Amino acid sequence: SEEEEEEWRRAKERGEEIIILGILWKPNDEEAERRIKEALRRV
């Protein structure tokens, strides 16, 4: 969703871990980033 995407962007800017759509994303975690982008597209 729009607000999840916004939340994720803010976490990326701050360089902090975030759990979004049930996926743990850490800074520079390209695999998780790809999965999150896929999940955001499906929503």
Rank of each mutant, 00 (worst) to 15 (best):
residue 19 I to V: 11
residue 28 N to E: 09
residue 6 E to W: 08
residue 13 E to F: 06
residue 21 L to T: 01
residue 12 K to W: 14
residue 22 G to R: 00
residue 42 R to C: 09
residue 1 S to L: 15
residue 13 E to A: 12
residue 40 L to N: 00
residue 34 R to Q: 12
residue 2 E to R: 14
residue 31 E to F: 04
residue 12 K to D: 05
residue 5 E to N: 10
residue 19 I to Q: 07
residue 17 E to I: 11
residue 5 E to P: 12
residue 26 K to F: 04
residue 13 E to N: 07
residue 15 G to I: 04
residue 24 L to T: 07
residue 31 E to Q: 07
residue 21 L to I: 06
residue 33 E to N: 07
residue 21 L to N: 03
residue 2 E to W: 15
residue 42 R to H: 13
residue 24 L to Q: 05
residue 33 E to I: 05
residue 36 I to Y: 02
residue 1 S to H: 15
residue 4 E to R: 12
residue 40 L to E: 02
residue 33 E to W: 09
residue 31 E to S: 06
residue 13 E to D: 10
residue 14 R to M: 11
residue 14 R to W: 07
residue 25 W to Y: 04
residue 5 E to T: 10
residue 28 N to R: 06
residue 33 E to P: 00
residue 26 K to T: 11
residue 42 R to E: 12
residue 23 I to Q: 00
residue 2 E to Y: 15
residue 7 E to Y: 11
residue 23 I to A: 01
residue 4 E to G: 11
residue 29 D to L: 02
residue 16 E to W: 13
residue 24 L to V: 09
residue 32 A to H: 00
residue 27 P to I: 03
residue 7 E to S: 14
residue 36 I to E: 00
residue 1 S to M: 15
residue 3 E to D: 15
residue 41 R to M: 11
residue 24 L to Y: 10
residue 21 L to Q: 08
residue 36 I to R: 01
residue 20 I to W: 05
residue 40 L to M: 07
residue 34 R to E: 14
residue 19 I to K: 06
residue 28 N to K: 05
residue 24 L to P: 06
residue 5 E to M: 13
residue 31 E to A: 07
residue 5 E to R: 06
residue 34 R to K: 11
residue 11 A to R: 06
residue 18 I to W: 07
residue 43 V to K: 15
residue 32 A to L: 05
residue 36 I to P: 00
residue 29 D to E: 02
residue 8 W to E: 03
residue 15 G to D: 03
residue 14 R to L: 10
residue 22 G to P: 00
residue 9 R to P: 02
residue 12 K to E: 02
residue 15 G to Q: 08
residue 7 E to N: 15
residue 37 K to H: 10
residue 22 G to D: 04
residue 22 G to L: 09
residue 21 L to R: 11
residue 2 E to I: 14
residue 27 P to N: 03
residue 26 K to Q: 07
residue 29 D to T: 01
residue 21 L to M: 13
residue 30 E to W: 10
residue 6 E to N: 09
residue 23 I to P: 00
residue 12 K to P: 03
residue 30 E to T: 09
residue 18 I to A: 08
residue 13 E to P: 01
residue 37 K to Q: 14
residue 33 E to G: 04
residue 34 R to N: 12
residue 38 E to D: 09
residue 18 I to G: 01
residue 35 R to L: 13
residue 27 P to Y: 03
residue 6 E to V: 08
residue 42 R to D: 11
residue 4 E to N: 11
residue 12 K to N: 06
residue 3 E to I: 13
residue 4 E to F: 15
residue 40 L to D: 01
residue 2 E to K: 13
residue 10 R to I: 12
residue 14 R to V: 08
residue 42 R to W: 11
residue 3 E to T: 14
residue 11 A to Q: 03
residue 23 I to G: 01
residue 10 R to K: 12
residue 32 A to K: 01
residue 27 P to Q: 03
residue 41 R to F: 09
residue 28 N to A: 07
residue 17 E to D: 06
residue 27 P to V: 03
residue 13 E to W: 06
